[in-house]
């Protein structure tokens, strides 16, 4: 009897924990929606998303976030261009080529990379990468979208490497054996069989990496220069959506237009990251059903 009661209680506690995590997400979303939508009552959505000028405190105030969206896209795309090939190649090396000793060391290093706080990465980037970029390309400032991309690539790498590596490792040995027994070389086997079979997992890893990059705030705020204009190249300062929210939230009047507009940015950001995660889930789900 007593065992049954304990069983019952524990079951309910675990149930509560599970439900709570959903409740929190829903609550956050509702809050964001409430503040964001009330902003759109006073300000046209179209003007908000496609407006080029972000002058939240001038008279009359301009809330156009196109420059911020473009800034986010520049930094994210740049980070992906760097992190995806590097990350997938690293995962391949760790899971397929590296000898056992090297593999263990590399794996723990990559996992350690994930544990570095973003403010530290931003700090290191500011002290080393920014002056380096300025001198290398001979530009007025090193605080550019390009520097931000490099730092963010660093942060996305651990996600991409660990998840791709899992996917690659879960390709059954018999597939490889089958290809090798037909006279395929190791590289042919990796390229045509291993990569192909692990592709859904690798795509999911990339998506999760992108999600991480889009949402990243601290490092980009420190490195990208925070100029809210549409850049003509990646060697110009940009400002991302996340950095805008973080930088300006402290100076707004609670309940004012500026305050609400930051929530609206959060809403746009939420929609973007949600779509990325949703697509990643779809791909992963497709893999499992196969």
């Amino acid at each position: 009897m007593k065992r049954k009661i304990i069983d019952f209680i524990i079951e309910k506690i675990i149930f509560l924990c599970g439900v709570l995590s959903i409740v929190f997400v829903v609550l956050i979303f509702c809050f964001l929606l409430k503040e964001g939508v009330s902003f759109f009552k006073d300000y046209d959505v179209f003007k908000f998303v496609f407006g080029k000028l972000w002058y939240p405190s001038s008279e009359p105030a301009q809330f156009g976030i196109l420059a911020l969206i473009v800034g986010s896209i520049y930094v994210t795309a740049g980070a992906c261009l760097i992190a995806v090939p590097l990350g997938v190649a690293a995962a391949l090396y760790i899971s397929e080529i590296a000898p056992a000793g090297v593999r263990d060391v590399l794996k723990s290093c990559v996992e350690l990379m994930a544990a570095v706080p973003s403010v530290v990465i931003g700090f290191v980037g500011m002290a080393t990468l920014v002056p380096f970029v300025r001198e290398l390309f001979d530009i007025p400032t090193g605080l550019t979208a390009f520097s931000g991309s490099i730092m963010l690539a660093f942060m996305a790498m651990p996600t991409i490497v660990t998840i791709s590596e899992d996917a690659i490792r879960s390709v059954p040995w018999s597939y490889k054996e089958g290809a090798l027994a037909l006279g395929a070389t190791r590289w042919q086997t990796i390229r045509r069989i291993v990569l192909k079979a692990a592709m859904p997992g690798i795509i999911a890893a990339i998506m999760l990496g992108i999600g991480r990059v889009i949402g990243e705030t601290m490092a980009v705020m420190m490195i990208t220069g925070n100029a809210a204009h549409i850049p003509s190249s990646i060697f110009e300062p940009v400002r991302t959506m996340t950095a805008t929210i973080a930088a300006e939230m402290g100076e707004t009047v609670r309940g004012g237009m500026h305050y609400k507009s930051l929530f609206a940015i959060g809403l746009v950001l939420f929609v973007i990251t949600f779509s990325v995660n949703f697509i990643a889930d779809l791909i992963l789900g497709k893999k499992k059903r196969k």
Partner: peptide
């Protein structure tokens, strides 16, 4: 091999 292992194609 013992188990048939068609490649995933």
């Amino acid at each position: 091999f013992a188990m048939p292992i068609p490649l995933p194609m």
